[in-house]
Simulated scan of single mutants.
Amino acid sequence: MKTVKLGKSGLKSAPIIFGGNVFGWTLDEKKSFKMLDELFERGFTTIDTADVYSRWADGVSHGTSERIIGKWMKERKLRDKITLITKGGSGLQPGGPKDNSRDYLTGTVKDSLLRLQTDYIDLYFTHFDDEETPVEEALEAYQKFMTSGEIKHIGASNFSAERLQKSITVAAEKDLPAYEVFQPEYNLMVRDKFEGKIKKICSENNLGVIPYFSLASGFLTGKYRTKEDLEGKDRKMFTEKFLNQRGEKVLKSLDQISEKHNISQAGVALAWLIKRPGVSAPIASATKSSHLKSFSEAIEVSLSKEDMEILNKASETE
Results as ranks from 00 to 15, higher is better:
A266P: 06
L273R: 06
E248H: 14
A266Q: 04
F242W: 15
A271M: 06
G267R: 05
K249N: 11
R246E: 00
K260L: 05
N244P: 07
K249T: 02
N262G: 01
L270W: 11
V268F: 07
L273G: 08
N262Y: 00
V268M: 01
S258L: 08
Q265W: 03
I257A: 09
S264L: 04
R246I: 04
W272N: 08
I263D: 05
A269I: 11
K249P: 06
Q256R: 12
S264V: 08
V250Y: 15
K249F: 03
L251S: 11
V250F: 14
L243V: 10
I263T: 14
Q256Y: 09
L273S: 06
L251P: 09
L270K: 06
Q256F: 12
S264E: 03
K252Y: 01
A271C: 06
K252M: 01
H261T: 09
I263L: 00
E248K: 15
G267C: 04
L254Q: 09
L243C: 07
Q245V: 08
Q256A: 03
K249R: 15
L254P: 13
E259L: 05
F242G: 07
S264D: 00
S264G: 06
G247E: 10
L254R: 12
H261I: 12
G267N: 05
V250I: 15
S253W: 01
F242Q: 04
E248R: 14
I263F: 03
Q265K: 15
S253L: 03
Q245P: 00
K249C: 02
R246L: 03
V250P: 13
A269Y: 12
F242R: 03
I257H: 13
F242M: 03
V250L: 13
K249H: 08
H261F: 06
L251A: 09
Q265G: 03
A266I: 09
N262C: 00
Q245M: 13
L270N: 10
I263A: 10
V268I: 15
L270E: 02
E259S: 15
H261Q: 01
E259Q: 14
S253F: 01
I257K: 11
W272H: 11
L273V: 01
L273M: 13
L273T: 06
I263E: 03
K249W: 05
L243P: 07
